[in-house]
Amino acid sequence: MTKKIIYRLLIVIILIVVTDKVVGHYLDGLYKKNRCDFSNGKLNVFLEEDNVDTIIVGSSRVLHTIKPNILGKGVKTLAFQHKHIYHNAVIIDLLKQEQKLPRKVLIFNIEMEDLYIQYEPRLLEQLYSLKYYYSKNGLAKELINRKGYQESLKFLSSVYRHNGEGWKLIAYPRTNLCSPVSETGYVPLIPNANDSARLSRSLIDDFKPYNFKKINPKVIALLEGIINTCDEMNIDLIFINAPYFKYHPEFIYASNYMKKFCREKNVRYVDFNEELITGLEQPEMWYDNMHLNDNGANIYTKYLKSKLTE
């Protein structure tokens, strides 16, 4: 009986392993070819770019709120929705690995919640779109493995490298969902009638108490890594914290910590929530509590430019 079970199990396992390798290889090919604005097509496009002087890295609060063309030529945004420090630290490491770091300036937007230890599970979840780089980038592997020993077992499968957003590689290309990557990396939030309702709702949602207290040393270590990379490559590094319509009081402690940390490391840090940016006090400039719409992005980017040239 046991023999029969083992024999049949072996057949199924061999069938699965072979299919997994074939499908995984096929998906790898699709991934590398992808130039649409999904499943890291944006990253593929970026890795082909030369002559980039300044890169702005961050989450949707960079993607929709900073207009690189206002900042000047050779400025690009490499920002991803719902992706924070862990994800973006891997992106920097990948750029370094592929020798695609900017020639002059790296602007890195920090989300204050990222600094708190309680937020770490969310940061780890955001790595799902970087599974392809698990075996290709040391930092990606190290961070993904922090989710637990189970992760290294899952990566025995080749298909699992594309778990997350990989299905779009098959489903999207022949549809109108394959939108091209924006040239500068900026994606506007066009003002619309829903903005004020959305802002009101987000003011309720965003102000639930986090009860965050402890700074995450692993995040600080990653920030130090980014600082060292920029030092090595002779790149000016600036950490920023993009503005909110209404700032969460629990972020103040983290921002103060950042200020102290950056002072010690001799790195520039600008918290735009401490600045008085004329125009941004109007609700019409906002998509929701944490994102500016296209009109607001104009005002903020101009202010950011003036700050950078100070």
């Binding site: 057949i11 979840e125 899952k154 778990n163 997350g164």
Partner: peptide
């Protein structure tokens, strides 16, 4: 049967929610 089981397992690995 074997093909069906293989497809199901590949779909679990490919599009299954891993969280």
């Amino acid at each position: 049967k074997y093909s069906w089981v293989t497809v199901i397992i590949i779909l679990i690995l490919f599009i299954g929610d891993s969280s």
